[in-house]
Design a protein around this nucleic acid. Structure first.
Lengths: 242, 242
DNA sequence: CAGTGGTCTAGACCACTTT
DNA sequence: AAGTGGTCTAGACCACTGA
Protein backbone atom coordinates (compact mmCIF):
# COMPACT_ATOMS: atom_id res chain seq x y z
CA UNK A 1 0.00 0.00 0.00
CA UNK A 2 1.07 3.57 -0.57
CA UNK A 3 2.15 5.27 2.64
CA UNK A 4 3.03 8.96 2.13
CA UNK A 5 2.42 10.90 5.31
CA UNK A 6 0.07 13.89 5.11
CA UNK A 7 1.75 17.28 4.85
CA UNK A 8 1.28 19.90 7.52
CA UNK A 9 -1.03 21.77 5.19
CA UNK A 10 -3.18 18.67 4.77
CA UNK A 11 -3.26 18.13 8.51
CA UNK A 12 -4.37 21.72 9.02
CA UNK A 13 -7.10 21.24 6.40
CA UNK A 14 -8.35 18.09 8.10
CA UNK A 15 -8.25 19.79 11.50
CA UNK A 16 -10.27 22.74 10.25
CA UNK A 17 -12.81 20.53 8.49
CA UNK A 18 -13.36 18.63 11.73
CA UNK A 19 -13.89 21.82 13.70
CA UNK A 20 -16.21 23.16 11.01
CA UNK A 21 -18.50 20.11 11.01
CA UNK A 22 -18.36 20.09 14.82
CA UNK A 23 -19.75 23.63 14.71
CA UNK A 24 -16.76 24.94 16.62
CA UNK A 25 -16.78 28.36 15.02
CA UNK A 26 -19.30 30.91 16.28
CA UNK A 27 -21.37 32.32 13.44
CA UNK A 28 -19.08 30.67 10.93
CA UNK A 29 -16.16 32.92 11.79
CA UNK A 30 -12.79 31.17 11.62
CA UNK A 31 -9.98 32.52 13.83
CA UNK A 32 -7.40 34.90 12.30
CA UNK A 33 -4.52 33.34 10.40
CA UNK A 34 -1.88 34.46 12.89
CA UNK A 35 -3.85 33.08 15.81
CA UNK A 36 -4.29 29.69 14.15
CA UNK A 37 -0.62 29.65 13.23
CA UNK A 38 0.59 30.02 16.81
CA UNK A 39 -2.16 27.76 18.14
CA UNK A 40 -1.21 24.92 15.80
CA UNK A 41 2.49 25.64 15.89
CA UNK A 42 2.94 26.18 12.17
CA UNK A 43 3.85 29.18 10.08
CA UNK A 44 1.24 31.55 8.77
CA UNK A 45 2.18 30.46 5.24
CA UNK A 46 1.03 26.93 6.01
CA UNK A 47 -2.27 28.22 7.36
CA UNK A 48 -2.71 30.36 4.28
CA UNK A 49 -1.97 27.39 2.04
CA UNK A 50 -4.65 25.35 3.81
CA UNK A 51 -7.13 28.26 3.62
CA UNK A 52 -6.40 28.70 -0.05
CA UNK A 53 -7.22 25.08 -0.81
CA UNK A 54 -10.33 25.08 1.35
CA UNK A 55 -11.48 28.20 -0.45
CA UNK A 56 -11.04 26.49 -3.81
CA UNK A 57 -13.05 23.57 -2.49
CA UNK A 58 -15.83 26.03 -1.75
CA UNK A 59 -15.71 25.37 2.00
CA UNK A 60 -14.64 28.79 3.22
CA UNK A 61 -14.68 32.38 2.03
CA UNK A 62 -11.97 34.94 2.79
CA UNK A 63 -12.64 38.67 2.92
CA UNK A 64 -9.68 40.99 3.13
CA UNK A 65 -9.83 43.09 6.23
CA UNK A 66 -12.87 41.27 7.55
CA UNK A 67 -11.96 37.65 8.23
CA UNK A 68 -12.41 34.07 7.08
CA UNK A 69 -15.84 32.44 7.15
CA UNK A 70 -17.41 29.02 6.78
CA UNK A 71 -19.42 28.46 3.62
CA UNK A 72 -22.25 26.29 4.91
CA UNK A 73 -23.53 24.85 1.61
CA UNK A 74 -19.97 24.01 0.54
CA UNK A 75 -19.91 21.06 2.89
CA UNK A 76 -22.94 19.47 1.29
CA UNK A 77 -21.97 19.69 -2.36
CA UNK A 78 -20.82 16.17 -3.07
CA UNK A 79 -19.86 16.18 -6.71
CA UNK A 80 -17.53 19.02 -7.55
CA UNK A 81 -18.06 19.07 -11.26
CA UNK A 82 -14.53 20.04 -12.24
CA UNK A 83 -12.89 17.42 -10.10
CA UNK A 84 -14.81 14.34 -11.16
CA UNK A 85 -12.45 11.54 -12.00
CA UNK A 86 -14.41 8.34 -11.60
CA UNK A 87 -18.17 7.92 -11.80
CA UNK A 88 -17.92 5.15 -9.27
CA UNK A 89 -16.64 7.73 -6.79
CA UNK A 90 -19.34 10.24 -7.73
CA UNK A 91 -22.04 7.68 -7.08
CA UNK A 92 -20.52 6.67 -3.75
CA UNK A 93 -20.41 10.35 -2.78
CA UNK A 94 -24.15 10.41 -3.41
CA UNK A 95 -24.59 7.58 -0.98
CA UNK A 96 -24.96 4.87 -3.58
CA UNK A 97 -23.17 1.52 -3.78
CA UNK A 98 -22.94 1.20 -7.52
CA UNK A 99 -22.41 -1.90 -9.65
CA UNK A 100 -20.82 -1.71 -13.06
CA UNK A 101 -21.66 -3.81 -16.12
CA UNK A 102 -19.64 -3.88 -19.31
CA UNK A 103 -22.33 -3.91 -22.00
CA UNK A 104 -20.05 -4.34 -24.97
CA UNK A 105 -16.48 -4.09 -26.21
CA UNK A 106 -15.73 -4.02 -29.90
CA UNK A 107 -13.38 -2.46 -32.41
CA UNK A 108 -14.62 -0.47 -35.36
CA UNK A 109 -13.20 1.99 -37.87
CA UNK A 110 -13.15 5.62 -36.83
CA UNK A 111 -15.40 8.14 -38.55
CA UNK A 112 -14.09 11.56 -39.54
CA UNK A 113 -15.11 13.38 -36.34
CA UNK A 114 -13.82 10.69 -34.02
CA UNK A 115 -10.54 10.44 -35.93
CA UNK A 116 -10.08 14.19 -35.60
CA UNK A 117 -10.81 14.06 -31.87
CA UNK A 118 -8.32 11.25 -31.27
CA UNK A 119 -5.69 12.55 -33.65
CA UNK A 120 -5.75 9.43 -35.85
CA UNK A 121 -6.63 8.69 -39.47
CA UNK A 122 -10.19 8.14 -40.60
CA UNK A 123 -10.76 4.41 -40.81
CA UNK A 124 -8.15 3.54 -38.15
CA UNK A 125 -9.55 1.00 -35.73
CA UNK A 126 -10.94 2.16 -32.42
CA UNK A 127 -11.72 0.13 -29.31
CA UNK A 128 -15.21 0.99 -28.08
CA UNK A 129 -16.29 0.11 -24.54
CA UNK A 130 -19.85 0.61 -23.34
CA UNK A 131 -20.60 0.51 -19.63
CA UNK A 132 -23.62 0.90 -17.42
CA UNK A 133 -23.48 2.06 -13.79
CA UNK A 134 -26.32 0.81 -11.65
CA UNK A 135 -27.59 1.45 -8.16
CA UNK A 136 -29.80 -1.35 -6.89
CA UNK A 137 -30.40 -2.59 -10.43
CA UNK A 138 -31.53 0.92 -11.37
CA UNK A 139 -29.39 2.21 -14.25
CA UNK A 140 -27.92 5.63 -13.48
CA UNK A 141 -25.10 6.35 -15.93
CA UNK A 142 -24.38 5.05 -19.42
CA UNK A 143 -20.88 5.65 -20.75
CA UNK A 144 -19.16 4.95 -24.02
CA UNK A 145 -15.35 5.17 -24.16
CA UNK A 146 -13.39 5.14 -27.40
CA UNK A 147 -9.62 4.59 -27.58
CA UNK A 148 -7.43 4.16 -30.64
CA UNK A 149 -6.80 0.41 -30.95
CA UNK A 150 -3.13 1.06 -31.71
CA UNK A 151 -2.67 2.41 -28.18
CA UNK A 152 -3.96 -0.70 -26.45
CA UNK A 153 -1.24 -3.17 -25.45
CA UNK A 154 -3.42 -6.25 -24.95
CA UNK A 155 -4.95 -7.45 -28.16
CA UNK A 156 -8.14 -8.76 -26.52
CA UNK A 157 -10.58 -6.56 -24.64
CA UNK A 158 -9.10 -7.27 -21.21
CA UNK A 159 -9.41 -4.52 -18.63
CA UNK A 160 -12.69 -3.06 -19.80
CA UNK A 161 -14.05 -3.45 -16.29
CA UNK A 162 -11.44 -1.03 -14.96
CA UNK A 163 -12.20 2.66 -14.53
CA UNK A 164 -11.18 4.24 -17.80
CA UNK A 165 -8.31 6.25 -16.30
CA UNK A 166 -6.81 3.04 -14.96
CA UNK A 167 -7.34 1.29 -18.27
CA UNK A 168 -5.44 4.04 -20.07
CA UNK A 169 -2.64 3.87 -17.52
CA UNK A 170 -2.25 0.10 -17.20
CA UNK A 171 -3.28 -1.14 -20.65
CA UNK A 172 -2.10 1.75 -22.79
CA UNK A 173 0.71 3.34 -20.81
CA UNK A 174 -0.83 6.75 -21.39
CA UNK A 175 -2.05 8.06 -18.03
CA UNK A 176 -4.89 10.55 -18.26
CA UNK A 177 -4.11 14.19 -17.48
CA UNK A 178 -7.41 15.99 -17.92
CA UNK A 179 -10.67 16.07 -19.81
CA UNK A 180 -12.20 18.79 -21.92
CA UNK A 181 -15.94 18.30 -21.51
CA UNK A 182 -19.02 19.71 -23.17
CA UNK A 183 -22.33 19.81 -21.32
CA UNK A 184 -25.11 18.82 -23.66
CA UNK A 185 -28.82 18.51 -22.96
CA UNK A 186 -30.39 15.63 -24.86
CA UNK A 187 -33.70 13.88 -25.22
CA UNK A 188 -33.45 10.13 -24.80
CA UNK A 189 -34.21 8.09 -27.87
CA UNK A 190 -35.31 4.47 -28.09
CA UNK A 191 -32.03 2.63 -27.52
CA UNK A 192 -30.63 4.80 -24.76
CA UNK A 193 -34.04 5.18 -23.17
CA UNK A 194 -34.37 1.40 -22.99
CA UNK A 195 -30.89 1.10 -21.54
CA UNK A 196 -31.61 3.63 -18.80
CA UNK A 197 -35.17 2.35 -18.38
CA UNK A 198 -36.77 5.71 -19.01
CA UNK A 199 -39.51 6.76 -21.39
CA UNK A 200 -38.39 8.06 -24.76
CA UNK A 201 -38.58 11.83 -24.69
CA UNK A 202 -37.15 12.16 -21.18
CA UNK A 203 -34.54 14.92 -20.96
CA UNK A 204 -31.07 13.95 -19.77
CA UNK A 205 -27.68 15.54 -19.30
CA UNK A 206 -24.83 14.32 -21.46
CA UNK A 207 -21.07 14.85 -21.24
CA UNK A 208 -19.10 14.71 -24.45
CA UNK A 209 -15.45 14.77 -23.66
CA UNK A 210 -11.96 14.30 -24.92
CA UNK A 211 -9.35 12.94 -22.53
CA UNK A 212 -5.76 14.11 -22.86
CA UNK A 213 -2.67 12.39 -21.51
CA UNK A 214 0.05 14.17 -19.60
CA UNK A 215 1.73 15.20 -22.85
CA UNK A 216 -1.40 16.94 -24.10
CA UNK A 217 -2.12 14.23 -26.64
CA UNK A 218 -5.78 13.18 -27.05
CA UNK A 219 -6.20 9.54 -26.03
CA UNK A 220 -9.89 9.16 -25.26
CA UNK A 221 -13.27 10.13 -26.60
CA UNK A 222 -16.10 9.60 -24.15
CA UNK A 223 -19.85 10.13 -24.07
CA UNK A 224 -21.79 9.79 -20.83
CA UNK A 225 -25.49 10.11 -20.16
CA UNK A 226 -26.98 10.60 -16.68
CA UNK A 227 -30.39 9.91 -15.25
CA UNK A 228 -31.38 13.29 -13.86
CA UNK A 229 -33.83 11.76 -11.39
CA UNK A 230 -31.08 9.72 -9.74
CA UNK A 231 -27.99 11.88 -10.15
CA UNK A 232 -28.08 15.64 -10.30
CA UNK A 233 -24.94 17.76 -10.50
CA UNK A 234 -24.54 20.71 -8.19
CA UNK A 235 -21.83 23.30 -8.10
CA UNK A 236 -20.82 26.45 -6.33
CA UNK A 237 -20.35 29.47 -8.53
CA UNK A 238 -18.42 32.47 -7.36
CA UNK A 239 -16.94 35.59 -8.79
CA UNK A 240 -13.88 35.05 -10.96
CA UNK A 241 -10.63 35.88 -9.25
CA UNK A 242 -12.08 35.40 -5.79
CA UNK B 1 -12.29 55.03 -12.10
CA UNK B 2 -10.73 52.46 -9.83
CA UNK B 3 -6.95 52.43 -10.09
CA UNK B 4 -5.38 49.58 -8.06
CA UNK B 5 -2.09 48.58 -9.62
CA UNK B 6 -1.64 44.92 -10.55
CA UNK B 7 0.35 42.87 -8.06
CA UNK B 8 3.62 41.26 -9.02
CA UNK B 9 1.86 37.93 -9.18
CA UNK B 10 -0.69 39.32 -11.63
CA UNK B 11 2.06 40.82 -13.75
CA UNK B 12 3.84 37.47 -13.84
CA UNK B 13 0.58 35.78 -14.88
CA UNK B 14 0.02 38.27 -17.67
CA UNK B 15 3.62 37.91 -18.81
CA UNK B 16 3.35 34.12 -18.94
CA UNK B 17 0.02 34.20 -20.76
CA UNK B 18 1.55 36.45 -23.41
CA UNK B 19 4.50 34.16 -23.91
CA UNK B 20 2.21 31.14 -24.03
CA UNK B 21 0.01 32.55 -26.79
CA UNK B 22 3.12 33.74 -28.60
CA UNK B 23 4.26 30.11 -28.62
CA UNK B 24 7.44 31.03 -26.78
CA UNK B 25 7.77 27.73 -24.98
CA UNK B 26 9.18 24.77 -26.87
CA UNK B 27 6.91 21.76 -26.66
CA UNK B 28 4.81 23.48 -24.04
CA UNK B 29 7.55 23.33 -21.44
CA UNK B 30 7.69 26.36 -19.17
CA UNK B 31 11.09 27.27 -17.62
CA UNK B 32 11.84 26.11 -14.06
CA UNK B 33 10.51 28.22 -11.21
CA UNK B 34 13.94 29.30 -10.00
CA UNK B 35 14.98 30.35 -13.50
CA UNK B 36 11.86 32.44 -14.02
CA UNK B 37 12.31 33.98 -10.59
CA UNK B 38 15.79 35.32 -11.31
CA UNK B 39 14.88 36.23 -14.88
CA UNK B 40 11.91 38.34 -13.77
CA UNK B 41 13.58 39.57 -10.60
CA UNK B 42 10.95 38.26 -8.18
CA UNK B 43 11.02 35.61 -5.51
CA UNK B 44 10.21 32.00 -6.25
CA UNK B 45 7.13 32.34 -4.03
CA UNK B 46 5.69 34.92 -6.39
CA UNK B 47 6.31 32.66 -9.37
CA UNK B 48 4.68 29.77 -7.54
CA UNK B 49 1.69 31.94 -6.68
CA UNK B 50 1.25 32.83 -10.35
CA UNK B 51 1.68 29.17 -11.38
CA UNK B 52 -0.85 28.09 -8.81
CA UNK B 53 -3.47 30.47 -10.15
CA UNK B 54 -2.75 29.58 -13.77
CA UNK B 55 -3.09 25.93 -12.87
CA UNK B 56 -6.49 26.58 -11.30
CA UNK B 57 -7.50 28.39 -14.48
CA UNK B 58 -6.63 25.22 -16.38
CA UNK B 59 -3.89 26.93 -18.38
CA UNK B 60 -0.90 24.98 -17.10
CA UNK B 61 -0.12 21.64 -15.46
CA UNK B 62 2.61 21.09 -12.89
CA UNK B 63 4.29 17.74 -12.41
CA UNK B 64 6.57 17.28 -9.44
CA UNK B 65 10.07 16.41 -10.51
CA UNK B 66 9.26 16.81 -14.18
CA UNK B 67 8.35 20.43 -14.87
CA UNK B 68 5.54 22.84 -15.70
CA UNK B 69 3.67 22.54 -18.98
CA UNK B 70 1.21 24.48 -21.09
CA UNK B 71 -2.30 23.07 -21.29
CA UNK B 72 -3.20 23.86 -24.89
CA UNK B 73 -7.00 23.53 -24.66
CA UNK B 74 -7.09 25.62 -21.48
CA UNK B 75 -6.60 28.79 -23.49
CA UNK B 76 -9.69 28.16 -25.58
CA UNK B 77 -12.20 27.39 -22.87
CA UNK B 78 -14.04 30.65 -22.60
CA UNK B 79 -16.72 30.05 -20.01
CA UNK B 80 -15.27 28.57 -16.85
CA UNK B 81 -18.45 27.17 -15.41
CA UNK B 82 -17.63 27.78 -11.76
CA UNK B 83 -16.61 31.37 -12.29
CA UNK B 84 -19.59 32.66 -14.20
CA UNK B 85 -20.87 35.86 -12.69
CA UNK B 86 -22.75 37.69 -15.42
CA UNK B 87 -24.33 36.15 -18.51
CA UNK B 88 -23.53 39.30 -20.39
CA UNK B 89 -19.86 38.53 -19.83
CA UNK B 90 -20.28 34.88 -20.82
CA UNK B 91 -21.87 35.89 -24.11
CA UNK B 92 -19.15 38.43 -24.83
CA UNK B 93 -16.56 35.75 -24.15
CA UNK B 94 -18.24 33.72 -26.86
CA UNK B 95 -17.80 36.57 -29.28
CA UNK B 96 -21.34 37.85 -29.08
CA UNK B 97 -22.52 41.41 -28.49
CA UNK B 98 -25.65 40.66 -26.50
CA UNK B 99 -28.68 42.83 -25.92
CA UNK B 100 -30.86 42.44 -22.86
CA UNK B 101 -34.62 42.87 -22.63
CA UNK B 102 -36.59 42.95 -19.40
CA UNK B 103 -39.66 40.90 -20.25
CA UNK B 104 -41.57 41.46 -17.03
CA UNK B 105 -41.28 42.60 -13.43
CA UNK B 106 -44.01 41.81 -10.95
CA UNK B 107 -44.53 40.90 -7.32
CA UNK B 108 -46.37 37.79 -6.27
CA UNK B 109 -46.78 35.72 -3.11
CA UNK B 110 -44.15 33.04 -2.52
CA UNK B 111 -45.08 29.37 -2.74
CA UNK B 112 -43.80 26.89 -0.19
CA UNK B 113 -40.65 25.86 -2.10
CA UNK B 114 -39.63 29.39 -3.02
CA UNK B 115 -40.25 30.58 0.55
CA UNK B 116 -38.01 27.81 1.87
CA UNK B 117 -35.28 28.67 -0.65
CA UNK B 118 -35.33 32.35 0.26
CA UNK B 119 -35.80 31.85 3.99
CA UNK B 120 -39.10 33.74 4.12
CA UNK B 121 -42.69 32.85 5.01
CA UNK B 122 -45.04 31.28 2.52
CA UNK B 123 -47.19 34.02 1.07
CA UNK B 124 -44.60 36.78 1.59
CA UNK B 125 -44.31 38.90 -1.50
CA UNK B 126 -41.52 38.26 -3.96
CA UNK B 127 -40.23 40.48 -6.75
CA UNK B 128 -39.95 38.46 -9.97
CA UNK B 129 -37.84 39.71 -12.87
CA UNK B 130 -37.79 37.96 -16.22
CA UNK B 131 -35.07 38.77 -18.72
CA UNK B 132 -34.07 37.67 -22.18
CA UNK B 133 -30.51 37.84 -23.54
CA UNK B 134 -30.30 38.15 -27.30
CA UNK B 135 -27.57 38.05 -29.91
CA UNK B 136 -28.61 39.68 -33.17
CA UNK B 137 -32.28 39.36 -32.24
CA UNK B 138 -31.72 35.64 -31.66
CA UNK B 139 -32.74 34.75 -28.09
CA UNK B 140 -29.97 32.85 -26.27
CA UNK B 141 -30.70 32.89 -22.53
CA UNK B 142 -33.92 33.27 -20.59
CA UNK B 143 -33.58 34.08 -16.88
CA UNK B 144 -36.02 34.49 -14.05
CA UNK B 145 -34.79 36.11 -10.81
CA UNK B 146 -36.80 36.12 -7.60
CA UNK B 147 -35.97 38.33 -4.60
CA UNK B 148 -37.97 38.83 -1.39
CA UNK B 149 -39.82 42.12 -1.85
CA UNK B 150 -38.92 43.12 1.71
CA UNK B 151 -35.25 43.28 0.72
CA UNK B 152 -35.77 45.74 -2.13
CA UNK B 153 -35.25 49.38 -1.14
CA UNK B 154 -37.03 51.02 -4.06
CA UNK B 155 -40.75 50.28 -4.08
CA UNK B 156 -41.06 50.32 -7.87
CA UNK B 157 -39.25 47.92 -10.15
CA UNK B 158 -36.33 50.26 -10.86
CA UNK B 159 -33.02 48.61 -11.61
CA UNK B 160 -34.34 45.47 -13.26
CA UNK B 161 -32.11 46.19 -16.24
CA UNK B 162 -29.02 45.85 -14.05
CA UNK B 163 -27.14 42.57 -13.80
CA UNK B 164 -28.69 40.76 -10.87
CA UNK B 165 -25.56 40.92 -8.71
CA UNK B 166 -25.53 44.69 -9.11
CA UNK B 167 -29.24 44.91 -8.40
CA UNK B 168 -28.76 43.02 -5.14
CA UNK B 169 -25.87 45.27 -4.17
CA UNK B 170 -27.30 48.66 -5.14
CA UNK B 171 -31.02 48.16 -4.61
CA UNK B 172 -31.00 45.70 -1.72
CA UNK B 173 -27.71 46.35 0.04
CA UNK B 174 -27.03 42.62 0.07
CA UNK B 175 -24.06 41.94 -2.23
CA UNK B 176 -23.96 38.47 -3.67
CA UNK B 177 -21.33 36.06 -2.36
CA UNK B 178 -21.89 32.87 -4.31
CA UNK B 179 -24.45 30.67 -6.00
CA UNK B 180 -25.35 27.06 -5.37
CA UNK B 181 -26.48 25.80 -8.76
CA UNK B 182 -28.14 22.66 -10.03
CA UNK B 183 -27.68 21.53 -13.62
CA UNK B 184 -30.97 20.32 -15.00
CA UNK B 185 -31.77 18.99 -18.46
CA UNK B 186 -35.21 20.05 -19.63
CA UNK B 187 -37.42 19.79 -22.66
CA UNK B 188 -38.80 23.13 -23.76
CA UNK B 189 -42.54 23.54 -23.43
CA UNK B 190 -44.81 25.92 -25.30
CA UNK B 191 -44.18 29.18 -23.45
CA UNK B 192 -40.41 28.89 -23.06
CA UNK B 193 -40.05 27.41 -26.53
CA UNK B 194 -41.85 30.45 -27.99
CA UNK B 195 -39.68 32.79 -25.97
CA UNK B 196 -36.47 31.17 -27.20
CA UNK B 197 -37.93 30.63 -30.67
CA UNK B 198 -37.33 26.90 -30.67
CA UNK B 199 -39.65 24.00 -31.37
CA UNK B 200 -41.41 22.48 -28.39
CA UNK B 201 -39.59 19.28 -27.49
CA UNK B 202 -36.11 20.74 -27.99
CA UNK B 203 -33.74 19.78 -25.16
CA UNK B 204 -32.11 22.60 -23.23
CA UNK B 205 -29.85 23.08 -20.24
CA UNK B 206 -31.27 24.81 -17.20
CA UNK B 207 -29.58 26.26 -14.09
CA UNK B 208 -31.63 26.37 -10.93
CA UNK B 209 -29.77 28.31 -8.33
CA UNK B 210 -29.89 30.00 -4.99
CA UNK B 211 -27.76 33.07 -4.47
CA UNK B 212 -26.28 33.74 -1.02
CA UNK B 213 -24.99 37.03 0.31
CA UNK B 214 -21.68 37.45 2.06
CA UNK B 215 -23.26 36.44 5.36
CA UNK B 216 -24.46 33.11 3.96
CA UNK B 217 -28.09 34.25 3.85
CA UNK B 218 -30.13 33.26 0.77
CA UNK B 219 -31.20 36.36 -1.13
CA UNK B 220 -31.97 35.13 -4.64
CA UNK B 221 -33.70 32.30 -6.43
CA UNK B 222 -32.89 32.10 -10.12
CA UNK B 223 -33.78 29.89 -13.07
CA UNK B 224 -31.96 30.20 -16.38
CA UNK B 225 -32.46 28.35 -19.63
CA UNK B 226 -29.88 28.26 -22.44
CA UNK B 227 -30.15 27.60 -26.14
CA UNK B 228 -27.72 24.76 -26.66
CA UNK B 229 -27.25 25.56 -30.33
CA UNK B 230 -25.98 29.05 -29.52
CA UNK B 231 -24.29 28.66 -26.16
CA UNK B 232 -22.63 25.45 -25.05
CA UNK B 233 -20.74 25.15 -21.78
CA UNK B 234 -17.30 23.60 -21.75
CA UNK B 235 -15.08 22.80 -18.82
CA UNK B 236 -11.79 21.21 -17.94
CA UNK B 237 -12.00 18.29 -15.56
CA UNK B 238 -8.98 17.07 -13.69
CA UNK B 239 -8.15 14.80 -10.85
CA UNK B 240 -9.17 16.12 -7.46
CA UNK B 241 -6.27 17.47 -5.44
CA UNK B 242 -4.16 18.03 -8.55
C1' DC C 1 -7.42 53.21 14.45
C1' DA C 2 -6.97 48.34 15.38
C1' DG C 3 -7.32 44.06 13.26
C1' DT C 4 -7.68 41.22 9.31
C1' DG C 5 -6.32 39.10 5.05
C1' DG C 6 -3.05 40.09 0.71
C1' DT C 7 1.60 40.41 -1.13
C1' DC C 8 6.39 39.50 -1.10
C1' DT C 9 11.08 38.11 0.26
C1' DA C 10 15.18 34.74 1.00
C1' DG C 11 16.36 30.65 2.14
C1' DA C 12 16.13 25.64 3.63
C1' DC C 13 15.05 21.00 2.90
C1' DC C 14 12.10 17.17 0.87
C1' DA C 15 9.97 14.12 -2.85
C1' DC C 16 9.77 12.94 -7.21
C1' DT C 17 11.22 12.31 -12.26
C1' DT C 18 14.46 11.74 -15.49
C1' DT C 19 19.05 10.71 -17.34
C1' DA D 1 23.09 12.11 -9.58
C1' DA D 2 21.05 16.22 -11.25
C1' DG D 3 17.13 18.88 -11.77
C1' DT D 4 12.41 19.93 -10.90
C1' DG D 5 8.32 21.07 -8.29
C1' DG D 6 6.39 20.56 -3.17
C1' DT D 7 6.60 21.99 1.61
C1' DC D 8 7.78 25.04 5.21
C1' DT D 9 9.76 28.85 7.93
C1' DA D 10 10.12 33.82 9.89
C1' DG D 11 9.45 38.12 9.09
C1' DA D 12 8.16 42.59 6.66
C1' DC D 13 4.95 45.67 4.79
C1' DC D 14 0.48 46.83 2.33
C1' DA D 15 -4.75 47.23 1.54
C1' DC D 16 -8.95 46.85 3.22
C1' DT D 17 -12.93 46.50 6.78
C1' DG D 18 -15.31 47.82 10.52
C1' DA D 19 -16.05 49.94 15.01
Amino acid sequence: MITRKPSLTEQVMAHLKERIVAGDFEEGRIPPETELATELGVSRTTIRDAFSRLEHEGIITRRQGAGTFVNQPGLQIKSRLEEIWSYDEVLRDHGYTPSIEVLATRTEPAGADLAADLGIEEGDRVLVMEKLFRENDQPVIHTCNRVAASLVHDPDGAGATLPIYEFLDKHCGRPLGYYVSELIPVVLDGHLADMLRLDAGTPALCFEEIGFDRDNQPVLSATSVFRDDLLRFRLIRRKAGA
